[in-house]
């Protein structure tokens, strides 16, 4: 089938999409945006978090056809050209990146959190990030990055 959508501001028309295909597969294999990661295929790890019409979702749990005519923003769409988004910069500066497989999903989730709440408390940060698994960092420097980005945004 055919799916038309806007990804990171660019209109796309994709043919030959399978009916049961996920938005994640479409983004990675058809649009050529592999930034969103495929780690669990069941919404448990958050590595594929993207914006679907301004809402943060797991792209692996959205059927590609459900994204028809929608606007998708992926991790690749957050920076302003060469200029990193403050959340991205905070991840780099806080040392919140190790293997980096969870990083794209976390960057989008934190971007979303800070868009909704400018100064989240500890429990709030933990709750908001509970759907993003990281196996390397023990999350501590990711929390540092959230606080750093929140401070910068204020």
């Amino acid at each position: 089938m055919r799916v038309d959508l806007e990804v990171n501001g660019v209109r796309r028309s994709l043919d030959g999409v399978r009916e049961g295909e996920s938005l994640l597969h479409l983004l990675r294999e058809r649009v050529g945006l592999p930034g969103s990661k495929n780690a669990c295929e069941q919404g448990e790890c958050g590595s594929c978090t993207v914006y679907l019409d301004e809402t943060a979702v797991c792209a692996c749990l959205v059927a590609a056809g459900q994204a028809q005519d929608s606007r998708v923003v992926t991790v690749e769409g957050l920076a302003d050209g060469a200029e990193l988004h403050p959340v991205q910069r905070a991840f780099v500066e806080a040392g919140a990146v190790q293997c980096g497989f969870c990083t794209p999903g976390l960057v989008v989730t934190v971007h979303d959190l800070l868009a909704r709440t400018s100064d989240p408390g500890e429990a709030e940060i933990r709750e908001a990030l509970a759907g993003n698994l990281c196996r390397c960092t023990g999350y501590e420097k990711i929390f540092d990055a959230v606080r750093l980005a929140a401070g910068e945004a204020r």
């Binding site: 945006l33 592999p34 930034g35 969103s36 992926t74 991790v75 690749e76 957050l78 920076a79 990193l84 991205q88 910069r89 991840f91 780099v92 990146v97 980096g100 990083t103 794209p104 960057v107």
Partner: peptide, 9 residues
């Protein structure tokens, strides 16, 4: 590699 990783690249 951190910049490439946070950009998804």
């Amino acid at each position: 590699d951190a910049v490439a990783k946070v950009r998804g690249e």
